[in-house]
């Protein structure tokens, strides 16, 4: 049986891992290559590296990080952050990334999803959706959570699948950084609507949150950052807890 996946996420700026609350208030969380190696040894099923650099110079630093991570860990890893074109994606894939995550660029140009999946295969294409709870339901945010789009998350997720997305990385902006649990209702709705895997993100604080997102939210994978970066829990500890709950994870 296919295992539920635990995926640590590294937000990278100026070659360092950073961690914030609701995408802000960044604090330093270490050397990304060392952190990647640590998570690999600790049983991470995959890794996500997000480039949150602002300048071109920093983007070159990020490429070096991707290259070094690819030589250090032998599990799949996804890279994203500011990818806008097939050429940029190709550069990152050739540098050693296994999958590319796109977000705002896909909202602005949905055909990018199709272009990437036709060129590299849909297994390479992760569409990241930042979702915010509103009175009318869940709405898609763009530009790293700073702008509203008026698009419903379910509608957008379906369209992404239709255009060739291989996976959806669904972040609840409402719960991100709060450590109060994943958005299980939202994740369940998206997961039941789609026939591609859904990675839930935002809000992991304790191992029970992972159990909830797998059993109640029907997520295929769960992504987390702070809970692992600041060593509240190791990946092994979370997985052991899940195994005790009868949830199938790789051990």
């Amino acid at each position: 049986m296919l295992a539920k996946r635990i995926i640590p996420c590294l937000d990278i700026k100026n070659g360092r891992t950073v961690k914030g609350l609701n995408f802000n208030n960044l604090t330093d969380a270490g050397d990304p290559v060392k952190l990647a190696a640590k998570y690999y040894a600790d049983g991470a099923d995959e890794l996500v590296l997000l480039d949150i650099s602002a300048t071109l110079e920093d983007r070159e630093t990020f490429i070096d990080v991707v290259r070094n991570v690819a030589k250090t860990i032998f599990i799949p890893f996804t890279v994203g952050g500011g990818v806008k074109s097939v050429e940029q994606a190709e550069k990152l894939l050739k540098t050693g990334a296994d999958k590319i995550s796109i977000n705002t660029a896909a909202i602005q140009n949905p055909q990018l999803i199709r272009q990437l999946s036709e060129k590299f295969g849909s297994q390479c294409v992760v569409v990241a959706i930042d979702a915010k709870a509103t009175q009318d339901g869940w709405e898609v945010l763009s530009h790293a959570g700073t702008m509203t789009t008026g698009i419903s998350v379910i509608t957008w997720a379906k369209k992404c699948e239709l255009l060739g997305a291989g996976e959806i990385l669904l972040t609840s902006y409402t719960s991100d950084g709060t450590k109060s649990g994943f958005a299980t209702d939202l994740t369940l709705r998206v997961s039941q609507t789609l026939n591609i895997p859904v990675i839930a993100s935002g809000g992991a604080g304790i191992p029970q949150h992972f159990a909830d997102i797998f059993t109640k939210g029907n997520a295929d994978a769960a992504l987390a950052a702070g809970i692992f970066h600041f060593e509240n829990y190791t990946i092994t500890a979370v997985k052991n807890f899940l195994l005790e709950q009868g949830i199938n994870v790789r051990n």
Binding site: M1, L2, L194, R250
Partner: peptide, 26 residues
């Protein structure tokens, strides 16, 4: 869901390719 994406358990026969691995592993 298709593709199958992720870690699954593999049952291995006796073959030099699997030497030193568990008979059933991820």
């Amino acid at each position: 869901k298709v593709p199958q994406m992720g870690w699954n358990k593999v049952k291995m026969n006796n073959n030099p390719l699997f030497s030193g691995l568990n008979k059933d592993d991820w």
